[in-house]
């Protein structure tokens, strides 16, 4: 009886001891370190990449490449920006970047007065170099150090040539662009006109709209009403393409129309794979990101001064729907 009692007691003690010990270990050795305080070494250069279209495939690629490049060179780079071409937010970010006294700003150019004021006056006041990327703003207006991106003029030419290939040498082309004709759009338009002017049988109609979806639809309807015999559409600004095609699709089949656009819109690639776009201009966002980061660092380190004011052009090529399919 006594022996059983002692045995039971010992067992209880062992079990309790075991649980207590494991809990003790769990409770007092759980790793809950605060994140390491800054490793001390100040990153030499703080760069910011600011875009108007965060989280689009195009800008994601560019951002990742730029960040990678900066990391390789021992600088830190953050991607800021606005969503869906929100200019107000975009400009605010730019101003914050300037007021935060970052070492360099890589920015998607915006051809507005506010942007130019910020770039020209504020950034210059704080001595912060600005490189435009993907979309350029002329140096004289923005005091940018350089431009890294596609040759938009060439892009326009490529589109026009592709159009000629597909459609033949006669027809009616509707060119849809932003009301606020930004510099890069103008360049694209110039490129298209440059090619098409040699073909008198091709008639071009230029239509203007805004970013608002309803207006794009209205503009498209208007165009289709006024030009029922149209053969082709070119969305000068990639963002327009989605709403435009949607509206065309409501009227008739999309396939008979030759529709072209660029790859820097949020839905460009998906429209192409669906076969709704016949071709897009594919740019090199990775190259743009890495090259811009590299150039701004070189400039900061005085390795390459001055930068080419004409800009550093990256590769473009036409991507046809068939290829994608």
């Amino acid at each position: 009886m006594r022996k059983t009692g002692i045995l039971i007691f010992c067992l209880t003690c062992i079990v309790l001891g075991y649980f207590t010990f494991t809990l003790y270990k769990k409770a007092f050795t759980s790793e809950r370190d605060l994140p390491a305080a800054s490793d001390g070494q100040e990153v030499k250069y703080r760069l910011v990449l600011i875009t108007q279209e965060l989280e689009t495939p195009f800008w994601d690629k560019a951002g990742i490449a730029a960040r990678e490049q900066a990391r390789k060179n021992g600088a830190s780079l953050e991607v800021w920006g606005s969503y869906g071409k929100n200019q107000e937010e975009f400009l605010k970010k730019l101003e914050i970047a300037i007021q935060s006294k970052v070492d360099g700003i890589i920015v998607q150019g915006l051809d507005t007065k506010e942007f130019k004021d910020l770039a020209k006056i504020k950034a210059a006041f704080y001595g912060i170099p600005i490189i435009t990327v993907a979309n350029d703003v002329p140096k004289s207006e923005s005091l940018r150090k350089t431009y890294v991106g596609s040759d938009q003029y060439l892009a326009g030419q490529l589109i026009a040539e592709q159009l000629l290939d597909d459609m033949g040498h006669e027809g009616k082309v509707i060119l849809m662009g932003d009301k606020h004709k930004e510099y890069y759009q103008q360049q694209r338009l110039d490129g298209i006109h440059e090619v098409l002017k040699d073909y008198p049988n091709i008639q071009t109609v230029y239509a203007e709209t805004t970013d608002v979806r309803e207006e794009i639809i209205a503009a498209t309807q208007n165009m289709l009403n006024q030009n029922p015999d149209t053969d082709s559409f070119v969305a000068i600004k990639a963002n327009i393409a989605g709403a435009m095609i949607h509206e065309i699709g409501r009227r008739s089949l999309v396939e008979p129309y030759y529709i072209y656009s660029f790859d820097d819109g949020p839905d460009s690639i998906s429209l192409l794979t669906q076969g709704k776009l016949d071709g897009i201009i594919e740019q090199s966002p990775e190259k743009m990101g890495s090259l811009s980061a590299e150039l701004i660092l070189k400039w900061l380190k005085d390795e390459e001064v001055p930068l080419k004011s004409d800009g550093y052009l990256t590769d473009i090529r036409i991507l046809k729907a068939l290829e994608k399919k």
Partner: peptide, 18 residues
């Protein structure tokens, strides 16, 4: 300052300076 907010904090402090 810690490793996570290094960049933001520098900006923050610079903003205060500004």
């Amino acid at each position: 300052r810690n490793s996570e907010n290094d960049f933001a904090l520098t900006n923050y402090m610079n903003l205060i300076d500004s």
